[in-house]
Design a binder for these strands. Structure first.
Length: 489
RNA sequence: CGGGACGUAGCGCAGUCCGGUAGCGCACCUGAAUGGGGUUCAGGGGGUCGCGGGUUCGAAUCCCGCCGUCCCGACCA
């Protein structure tokens, strides 16, 4: 931050730009503990809107919220072999309580499968108890080596859905359904298009049968896994004895799923939409959608402009829209700060629409609306201000989504790329590469070592290339699936 | 855990080589003017110089130890 006022430009140092934007837009701050962060009101406000929307859909799809404890007996973590292996390196463990060493150490949850399925085994007796559809909003702790605000912190907030079903097919349907819930949310609300698909064995959740994910492309052309959904099969049911009596009278293990999205999505939002002036929040998730900046020169003007600005705010606040509820408006009536300074400040904070209103506007019964996403100014009459603001916000939402989609496609490569060209691309600007994969973990591992790119997923059908690749990107052998390759966060 | 940089006011830094009254910019407070894209002037408040020990008449500065942060590598929503 050589110049106090200007952000580092994305093109100069994307990583520095991201950190500065998050800090200066007051989304979050560093905590006294390494790797932890404080989510500030402007960041938490976005999270609350994300939570509200997702929670609504979770309930519409039949899930109920519950809360399971933070502390998990260490022995629980050991009951599922892959699970313990996957999470052991990043566990935080409580060894003392009340001044005494504990008989059994307690793990701070890195995720709650173990405690939840232990409880499910008590609650599930009969096929009539199924499906059991539970969600919890919680914090989890994973002791990561390197951390970044929102993207990877020791503690983060998320939701984790956990379900139990009578059949494998039902569990698979649930897994896919919730993946699509995430996808819809990310596209519609975050204006962040994603590629959905299945994870390879090496990227799969520890303990799952199959893992599906949503992958978004950030402005540095790296991939961000924004949500995952797991078909757990009967792995945890067997480990925690989640059994039920079937309609026919047999005893069977339940089929489980789990799925989650976290505050990491806020990082995704920043890196999808931000520009060199700071944050840009899509209207549907913006805690403030419209900021009114009054302008005056003389004391008389100040009085009448402020009075009229208050009126505009009141009349607009009454506007109710289908998806986004009442208009969320802030009137910046601070004195002693020039309008220009306010513009920069609210732009940095990402408020999608600004209304400028001064004496000239008052006399002409008009105001100036300025879009955050493309900075286009428009003078509109106050007669129809409600419609205009609502329309513009909706257009901004759509335009942001389209822009993000077009950027992703412009940086995606399909249809035949040599391994040499692939390496060059990954050393340079990066991007999404759709290419054949022979299915061997060896090829996957070698590519990772040589280029740092990984298979983000084997994309779902609608994202696959028109002509399926026939040979493996690495070994040239027969391709068994089309893979999406990219460097990832 | 390895390599590098750093720790001085809320933030960003200078001062450290060569020991001698702790400074600058921004932010903050007061007042006046200013106000359609980052306002100006005047006045003001704020510091265990990361922590502990040592050398010295005297340490932000030299020596030893520790702690912490950031960046780069091995792990990851």
């Amino acid at each position: 931050m050589a110049d106090d006022k200007k952000l580092t430009k994305r093109a100069d140092d994307f990583s520095a730009w991201y950190n500065e934007t998050v800090l200066r837009a007051e989304l979050a701050d560093y905590s006294p503990v390494r790797g932890c962060m404080v989510i500030r009101p402007r960041g938490y406000g976005i999270w609350e809107r994300m939570q509200h929307q997702l929670d609504t859909v979770f309930k519409e799809t039949g899930h109920e919220n519950a809360y399971f404890p933070l502390l998990i007996p260490e022995s629980f973590m050991r009951k599922e072999a892959e699970h313990v292996e996957g999470f052991a390196p990043e566990l935080a463990v409580v060894t003392h309580g009340g001044g005494k060493k504990l008989d059994e150490p307690l793990v701070i949850r890195p995720t709650s499968e173990t405690i939840i399925y232990a409880m499910f085994s008590k609650w599930v007796q009969s096929y009539r108890d199924l499906p059991l559809l539970i969600n919890q909003w919680a914090n989890v702790v994973r002791w990561e080596m390197r951390t970044r605000l929102f993207l990877r912190t020791l503690e983060f907030l998320w939701q984790e859905g956990h379900t139990a079903h009578a059949t494998e097919a039902e569990a698979e349907e649930e897994t896919r359904k919730m993946l699509n819930v995430y996808r819809d949310f990310m596209e519609t609300y975050m204006a962040m298009p994603v590629i959905t698909g299945i994870k390879t064995e090496s990227e799969k959740f520890a303990g799952a049968l199959r893992t599906y994910g949503c992958e978004a492309m950030m402005q540095d052309n790296k991939a961000l896994q924004a949500g995952t959904s797991h078909n757990l099969g009967q792995n945890f049911a067997k480990a925690f004895d989640v059994k039920f009596q079937t309609e026919a009278g047999d005893v069977a293990y339940a089929w489980n799923t789990s799925w989650g999205v976290s505050t990491r999505m806020i990082g995704g939002l920043v890196m999808t939409h931000g520009d060199d002036n700071g944050l840009i929040v899509p209207p549907l998730l913006a805690p403030i959608e419209l900021v009114i900046v009054p302008i005056w020169r003389t004391d008389e003007d100040k009085v009448r402009v402020m009075e009229a600005a208050e009126k505009i705010k009141t009349s607009l606040t009454g506007w109710e829209r289908r998806k986004s509820g009442k208009l969320r408006i802030h009137l910046d009536n601070r004195e002693g700060i020039k309008p220009g300074a306010k513009y920069y400040e609210w732009e940095l904070r990402g408020v999608p629409l600004r209304l400028e209103f001064g004496p000239r506007d008052l006399d002409a019964n008009q105001c100036v609306l300025v879009r955050r996403d493309n900075r286009v100014k428009r003078t509109v009459t106050l007669e129809s201000i409600g419609e205009d603001v609502a329309d513009l916000l909706s257009v901004i939402q759509t335009d942001m989504q389209v822009a993000a989609y077009e950027r992703r496609e412009a940086n995606s490569v399909r249809g035949g790329i040599s391994y040499d060209d692939f390496k060059t691309l990954m050393e340079g600007k990066g991007g999404f590469v759709y290419a054949g994969f022979c299915g061997s973990a060896k090829c996957e591992q070698e590519i990772k070592e040589e280029t740092k790119a990984t298979i983000r997923c084997l994309p779902d059908e609608e994202f696959r290339s028109a002509v399926a690749p026939t040979t493996c990107l690495k070994c040239g052998g027969k391709s068994v699936a089309e893979a999406l390759w990219a460097k990832a966060y």
